[in-house]
Amino acid sequence: MKPFERLEAPLAYLPMVNVDTDMIIPKQFLKTLKRTGLGKVLFFDMRYGEDGEKRDDFVLNESRYSGGCVLATGENFGCGSSREHAPWALNDFGIGCILAPSFADIFYNNCFKNGMLPIVKTDDEIREIVTSLEGVEGGRLVVDLEGLEISAWDGGGERLGVWSFDVEDSRRDALLEGLDDIGSTWTKREEIESFEFRNRKTLPWVYG
């Protein structure tokens, strides 16, 4: 996995609660055999009109987000299905960091497995961050995972605000180092084998 480095991108705001994974990526795109290429169908039904053209009223269609962004949104983001296609699509679009008051468990977990950083901030804090960048020419958000800080900057290089955030140490380390999760588990091979050996004696039916 690619290490999560300092991220700098414009901030897009989708003020909706309970954004579900069916919205993030509708089912017709789950037929793929790959992890890549889903960015163009991210938020498909909200992003494209009946004619297949991009809708003017959907935030991610603004040209300043075409190279990627940080997404700020409402509570319970990513609820519903376990489809990892949801973080894959966000990642492929160029969204490596999401701010929300809360995330659905499976989605939250899936993000880290793909080198993405979901950050929990209260609704009020998110509005404050969004407001600080509203109408700011060349405004950008800098996400510093090492320093656990988000900062807002204008196009001229002036800092408009700074906010701290928290993420579990183990998750942070894994992102920063881009650890191979399966490789980390395999360092415990002996423990796995001795667990199986013991268990096979006490609960033999589990092993068929």
Binding site: D169, S170, D173, A174, L179, S184, T185, T187, K188, E191, I192, F195, E196, N199
Partner: peptide, 12 residues
């Protein structure tokens, strides 16, 4: 099964 180096619990 054990605890990984990152502190997460490994579940069989």
């Amino acid at each position: 099964v054990g605890v990984r180096d990152d502190g997460t619990e490994l579940l069989y």
